[in-house]
Every structure is written in structure tokens, then in C-alpha cells.
């Protein structure tokens, strides 16, 4: 993926711009959106406990990769939704989803050796979209661009609230 800071900055930018248009989408929900951006990266736990280790421990097939798909991300968003009271759920669910979605879209544009990304919409479909291969997660370029965008969004929100 573009690195996690780029993801957080992209989520911030999108959510901050949304907050200019939608009254209830205030700062706590911008933060919820940024938290949502971390959801697809939960699969990184595989570096601690690999798929293979899980399979040998449990005796069943297993892959953390499901967490970066539509299905896995949706379930994680629902976990977030359950953590808040009923009156907050629609907003938090929306914010988390927006954040997770920005992450998945950004990841779908990563450079890969196969020219295709990953089954983003699984289990709705196992189609693997082609990727424009714009960047690697190890490059700082996307982060710089995202930081500039975040700065602009922040300034725009500041000016809007100053009126």
C-alpha cells in the first residue's frame, strides 16, 4: 500500500473535505475515518503470525488477506459500529467505511509484479482488477502528495469555520 502515513493523510483529506459539506461530520468523525483507514492493514498481523502458522495450529486453511477485501473490511467496520452507542452508529459506520474505502482504493493502484491488484470486492466477486501501478508502499512520494493535500484540506476547513 502507499505507506500507512499516506493512507492516514488521504483519509484525513477526504474526511475533512466531507466535513465541509456535511454538518454532522465533525472532527471526531474525521478521526473515525482515519481509524477506518487502518482496517485493511490489519492483515499486517501476518508478519507476527503467518498464514501458515495459523493453518498448522488450527488445521484449517487460513489467510489474513481477507481483511483487505470488501468482506473483511465490512465486518471490521461493524465491530467499530458495535463499540459505539446506537445514536452514533450510522455516523461512525459511515466514517469508518469512508476511511477503509480510501485505503482500499489507494492499495488497488499499487505497483505489482502481475499487473493486477487483489480481489478488492471479495466475496462479492473474486475478480482481481488491473492496477495502474502508480507507486510502491516503500516510496515516500505518495506520502508527500498526501501531506500537501491534507494541508490544503485543513486550511480550507479553517477558512470555512472562520467565516
Amino acid at each position: 500500500m502507499p505507506d500507512m502515513l499516506a493512507h492516514a493523510l488521504i483519509a484525513y483529506t477526504v474526511c475533512r473535505l466531507v466535513s465541509l459539506r456535511i454538518g454532522w461530520f465533525t472532527t471526531p468523525y474525521v478521526t473515525a475515518g482515519m481509524a477506518g483507514a487502518f482496517i485493511p492493514d490489519l492483515l499486517k498481523v501476518k508478519h507476527l503470525v503467518s498464514d501458515a502458522t495459523m493453518e498448522s495450529l488450527l488445521g484449517v486453511p487460513f489467510s489474513w488477506g481477507a481483511l483487505q477485501t470488501f468482506g473483511g473490511a465490512t465486518l471490521c467496520v461493524l465491530v467499530g459500529v458495535v463499540l459505539v452507542p446506537p445514536g452514533e452508529r450510522r455516523r461512525v459506520g459511515t466514517a469508518l467505511s469512508v476511511g477503509a474505502a480510501t485505503h482500499m482504493v489507494s492499495d488497488a493502484m499499487l505497483l505489482t509484479a502481475t499487473g493486477r491488484s487483489f480481489p478488492v470486492l471479495w466475496p462479492l466477486t473474486s475478480y482481481v482488477p488491473p492496477t495502474p501501478g502508480l507507486y510502491l508502499s516503500t516510496e515516500p512520494g505518495p506520502t508527500v502528495v498526501a501531506a500537501v493535500a491534507a494541508g490544503i484540506a485543513w486550511l480550507a476547513a479553517r477558512r470555512a469555520s472562520a467565516r
Binding site: D51, F62, S63, A66, G71, L75, P123
Partner: peptide, 12 residues
């Protein structure tokens, strides 16, 4: 449900 999904994904 998440666990089941990860087992399913691993079986593909």
C-alpha cells in the same frame, strides 16, 4: 464471522 471469512479466503 471474521474468522470464518479468513478460513474461506485461505481455502481459495
Amino acid at each position: 464471522a471474521l474468522f470464518a471469512l479468513m478460513v474461506w479466503y485461505g481455502s481459495l
